[in-house]
């Protein structure tokens, strides 16, 4: 089965006939998302995330490289047949009711009249919009629009669902419900491509993430792999002499503001990329007659990791 999303050396340069300034939004990005994954695309503002998603949907045209959805080049309209999309800050014609809008947009997605009739009521139920189905869209709040947008993206029973900030403007309860919908979709074998600023959300839902920065792919991998890449350990021990701390300053740091329970013990943070390095460090401490009370691995949050990667790239 071809990858759900395949991007090779993808580039996009925005230029204008009226201005000499050009912006390199994407610069040789390679990316692959397998069917059934929930893939998170992260990056600071202006990193090129939305441009990448728009190229996948042929809303923006690449200036270099190739992109395909399920093996079909993105410039072919039928490449979007198995796609559901929720854009950021989407707008629906506000004269429609929720139900009418789903019907018209379902038609545009190629959903038959019979399927539309069958799918719309349960979809409205899934996004908690049943009671508003006959209300005009102009009366909806941002959160309601977001939930309706999600229903629209799911209407054609797509195999790949691209979501750009799906929980933007949604209250915490609604956010959790959307998250649950995404997990349910994953369990039914759907592929989800999630573009979000909310790192905690990505961390809870995604199986794999990529970080884009300044148009380039900075990192890619599973969340466990990425957050474990630079492992930190908290060590409780007898005080380490200043001279030794100075020698190992890149590996061991005293933890400020968190005094040990006993005055004879101190807390330190060790940085070790693998088990061998950790044990070598502990052996070194023991050889200096430092007594260890406890050693706990401290896994970075995705947010910490993201900030490290973005800062490092800058």
């Amino acid at each position: 089965m071809p990858p759900a999303v395949q991007v090779q050396q993808l580039s996009k340069r925005y230029s204008s006939a009226f201005s000499k300034q050009a912006v390199q939004a994407l610069d040789g990005v390679d990316l692959q998302v397998e069917p059934g994954e929930i893939f998170g695309l992260l990056g600071p503002n202006g990193a090129g995330k939305t441009t990448l998603v728009k190229i996948l949907l042929s809303i923006v045209q690449a200036t270099g490289g190739r992109a395909a959805l399920f093996g079909v080049p993105v410039d072919k309209p039928h490449a979007r047949k198995r796609i559901g999309y929720l854009p950021e800050n989407h707008q629906f014609p506000d004269f429609f009711t929720a139900e009418q809008m789903l019907d018209v947009y379902g038609r545009m997605a190629g959903v038959s009249a019979e399927d539309r009739k069958r799918r719309i009521p349960p979809l409205l139920e899934t996004v908690r919009m049943t009671q508003w189905r006959e209300t005009k869209i102009k009366k909806f709040s941002k959160g309601m629009m977001q939930r309706l947008g999600l229903a629209q993206a799911l209407l054609n029973d797509a195999d790949l669902i691209l979501l750009d900030e799906p929980t933007d403007g949604v209250d915490p309860v609604g956010r959790r419900e959307i998250r649950d919908v995404l997990v349910d979709l994953r369990d039914t074998g759907k592929t989800i491509f999630l573009n979000s600023h909310l790192l905690s959300e990505v961390e809870q839902v995604c199986t794999r993430v990529a970080i884009l920065n300044q148009g380039r792919l900075a990192r890619e991998g599973s969340i466990a792999e990425l957050t474990a890449a630079d492992l930190y350990y908290e060590v409780l021990s007898t005080p380490i002499p200043e001279t030794l701390l100075a020698t190992l300053s890149d590996k061991i740091q005293p933890r400020n503001g968190t005094p040990a329970q006993e005055t004879v013990l101190r807390r330190y943070q060790l940085k070790a990329n693998d088990r061998q390095t950790l044990n070598a460090l502990l052996d070194r401490l023991r050889s200096e007659n430092i007594l260890l009370e406890s050693v706990h691995p401290v896994r970075q949050s995705l947010e910490d990791y993201f900030i490290d990667v973005v800062t490092e790239s800058v």
Binding site: K54, L57, S58, I59, P77, H78, A79, R80, K81, I83, Y85, P87, E88, N89, H90, Q91, F92, P93, Y105, M108, A109, G110, Q152, L162
Partner: peptide, 18 residues
Amino acid sequence: LAKGRVDLLLSKPISRAG
């Protein structure tokens, strides 16, 4: 063709000419 609306339309399996 307004932002947020054209994106949704272009994401459907229809050619731009269509």
